[in-house]
C-alpha cells in the first residue's frame, strides 16, 4: 500500500474502513487521506451517520408479555 491513496481507492475501501476490517497500514493511509481530502471526509461522515441510523433499527421496546416469559424462564431452570 502506497502512502498516498487516490480518492477512488479510498471510496473503494471506505466501508471496510468503517467496519474496521482493514489492516493497520491501510487503515492509517485512509485516515491520513481524509485529514486532507474534504470530499472523502464528507462521504465517510455520511456513511457513518447513515450506519448509526440503520443500527437504531435493531432496537425495539420489548413487550410486557416477553418480559413475563423471560422471568418465567429464569424461575423455572
Amino acid at each position: 500500500m502506497t502512502q498516498d491513496l487516490r480518492c477512488e481507492e479510498v471510496i473503494e475501501k471506505l466501508l471496510e474502513y468503517l467496519d474496521r476490517e482493514l489492516d493497520t497500514e491501510t487503515e492509517h493511509a485512509l485516515a491520513r487521506h481524509m485529514e486532507t481530502c474534504r470530499a472523502c471526509f464528507t462521504r465517510a461522515e455520511f456513511e457513518r451517520k447513515l450506519r448509526a441510523r440503520v443500527s437504531e433499527a435493531g432496537k425495539a421496546k420489548a413487550p410486557e408479555s416477553l418480559r413475563r416469559r423471560v422471568r418465567t424462564i429464569i424461575e423455572h431452570y
Binding site: 433499527a57 435493531g58 425495539a60 420489548a62 413487550p63 423471560v70
Partner: peptide
C-alpha cells in the same frame, strides 16, 4: 440487551409473535 434482541428478532422474522418466540 432485551430491547436490542427483540428489535433484531423483529427485523429478522418481520413478525411480532415470531420475534417474541425467537427471543424467549
Amino acid at each position: 440487551l432485551l430491547d436490542r434482541l427483540y428489535g433484531t428478532a423483529l427485523r429478522l422474522t418481520r413478525n411480532r409473535a415470531d420475534a417474541e418466540d425467537l427471543v424467549a
